[in-house]
Design a protein around this nucleic acid. Structure first.
Lengths: 345, 345
DNA sequence: CTGAAAGCGCTTACAG
DNA sequence: CTGAAAGCGCTTACAG
């Protein structure tokens, strides 16, 4: 039985070449012919076989987005769902498909990525959860596959990345705490080798010193993600001989646990401990006292990431001439009561 | 320049056929030859081009998992991340790749899916967020592509699905409420055309009637997802002339908002309103009074879904002889204080 | 504007 | 156990 494009061609009495050209919107096709082809394709639900098309074109028309399922080292779950939508907005304009590649908890991210790139399964890549030393970046560069990293790394150089502006967040938060009179300001640091753990330490040290405050290593609190992390943080903070009076939470989903632990300890956010949190996250919106926190538009971030990817892809460079993009994505502060700032007017 | 498998073959002085056979683990290859091929492939980072391989084999070795980004009609974000991991656990054993296909907010799910299946981009599909009438099911059946739905639908028949056991949850919760003496028991219903909105109504009516209670349509509360949904629910419940004394929340991320609104209204969960929630979700773990809720292992659900998919794929049927799987996935109750049940001993 | 034909990089009967 | 060759279903110079 004849199938695929040959079937269409036979049915229409034209060659497969003509069908292909019509379907691909080539200019040198008779208008009437094109109409007939398009009509027949839609009637028969025909679309070119993806494998054959990719093989012939030397491109898959797809962009991979690698996320890690290991919630111990990655952003909150809903972070990426928001970003995907923004990415799609841009890719969709160019008939590029977004395929999300979730690296299982049990697999090495490098090996996982390598399979996809070695197989030429995607035309470009978006990677996330960049580690301090992240061999994926060199792999991608060496194979010269277009990519952008959500996050920085010490590996590689001259590649495109968009990262959250941790430095800006830390500076803004500590400046604010200091203006409120705080001298002992703590910060959370993730346990993993994720790159921003290092950014947090560096930026914290720099900002504390700039204010002429004493740098107390005890105030860099290594804390797990999640509510349990926040809860344990509450225990740790108030167990210190000299507890901080303010804390900046640098990643998601900790606030609820911290609030809970403080209630148990009869401590009140904004009075006994000033708190600034990171990102709107489930559960944070209705906490009381209301949470002062940084925020960003995930959708806009996704758009920027997609544009940065296109700028790396030869076929799209003309329309996206940004070249290498290296950008810290700014966050906005929403003032609540948890940092005691509202009380200051 | 010679590339791909031809390069390997030339380098080793064997034919591409032999390289292919060695790489694919065919039995009829000399041991020494196989070793040389494998060693060279790993040294050169060679892996067969995915498109060429798929075209030759007539299979992509990948399973698509369609999720919807529209958070207004889907499960909580972290739901799927957990499921992916379980799915990968199973697919990974068979060298099948999981590719997640996120349908953008702006696109029609049917059209989105159709492109992938018409192009033969995947060997099998997992779909989610099934609607009451869901043409995707007929599309998949008609094209006879192996699939499993996470969720049921009135569309199609004789297809594999695994759905959360909403009926079981409703029965268990209402039985429990009734045993505690409640007579006015409310339930939340999502606004969308998602199939389980209908299941909830049916199951609620049946269970209420079975207990000989009065069926009050006002107690089926159409409620949006999310914290705002929960908050608004709190307003709606206590605005009724005759408020319910118990409520069953049937989807995620509402509890925090409801608690907040109740605090504002000086109402206490477990005393002024008995609450049973659906699923562990961010923010729920540290609420006080603690939340009585239903739960499930997302990972195990993912494993079951993957096995059901394999049972539909001709190449795996022998190892997964389950055939059509139609299964309601049970949830377990974690008792807290929010339903007042703890007080009963 | 259209068709015949080569070629994309693999896999797999078929022969030996 | 191995190789030559056909074929998977497209796209795209090339010729007309």
């Amino acid at each position: 039985m004849i199938k695929g494009i040959a079937r269409l061609a036979t049915e229409l009495g034209v060659s497969t070449a003509t069908v292909s050209r019509a379907l691909n919107g080539k200019s040198d096709v008779n208008g009437a012919t094109r109409t007939r082809v398009l009509e027949a394709a839609s009637r028969l639900g025909y679309a070119a076989n993806a494998s054959a098309r990719s093989l012939a074109k030397g491109a898959t028309n797809s962009v991979g987005f690698m996320v890690e399922l290991n919630s111990g080292t990655t952003r909150s779950d809903n972070f990426f769902m928001g970003v995907f939508d923004g990415v799609q907005d841009v890719l969709g304009r160019h008939d590029l498909e977004l395929v999300v590649l979730p690296c299982p908890t049990s697999k090495d991210p490098y090996a996982y990525l390598q399979r996809f790139v070695a197989r030429n399964a995607v035309d470009a890549m978006i990677i996330s959860a960049t580690q301090r030393v992240d061999p994926r970046i060199e792999l991608l560069q060496q194979r010269s596959i277009p990519f952008v990293a959500i996050g920085r790394s010490t590996s590689g150089t001259g590649y495109s990345w968009i990262d959250l502006d941790f430095e800006g967040v830390i500076k803004a938060a500590i400046d604010r705490f200091v203006a409120q009179g705080h001298r002992r300001i703590a910060i959370t640091v993730p346990l993993s080798q994720i790159n921003f753990a290092y950014l947090i330490r560096d930026s914290y040290r720099r900002t504390i010193r700039r204010h002429g405050l004493k740098l107390d290593p005890d105030l860099m609190l290594v804390t797990a993600w999640g509510e349990e992390g926040g809860y344990d943080l509450g225990s740790a903070v108030f167990a210190l001989k000299e507890p901080p009076t303010a804390v900046l939470l640098m990643y998601e989903t900790m606030t609820v646990g911290l609030y809970r632990r403080m209630r148990e300890l009869k401590k009140r956010p904004g009075r006994d401990l000033a708190i600034i949190a990171f990102r709107d996250e489930p559960g944070i919106g209705y906490l009381s006292p209301s949470v002062t926190r940084f925020n960003l538009s995930l959708h806009e971030l996704g758009v920027a990431v997609a544009e940065a990817v296109l700028a790396q892809m030869p076929a799209y460079r003309e329309h996206y001439p940004e070249g290498i993009v290296q950008r810290r994505w700014p966050l906005q502060l929403t003032v609540g009561e948890s940092d005691g700032g509202a009380a200051l007017g």
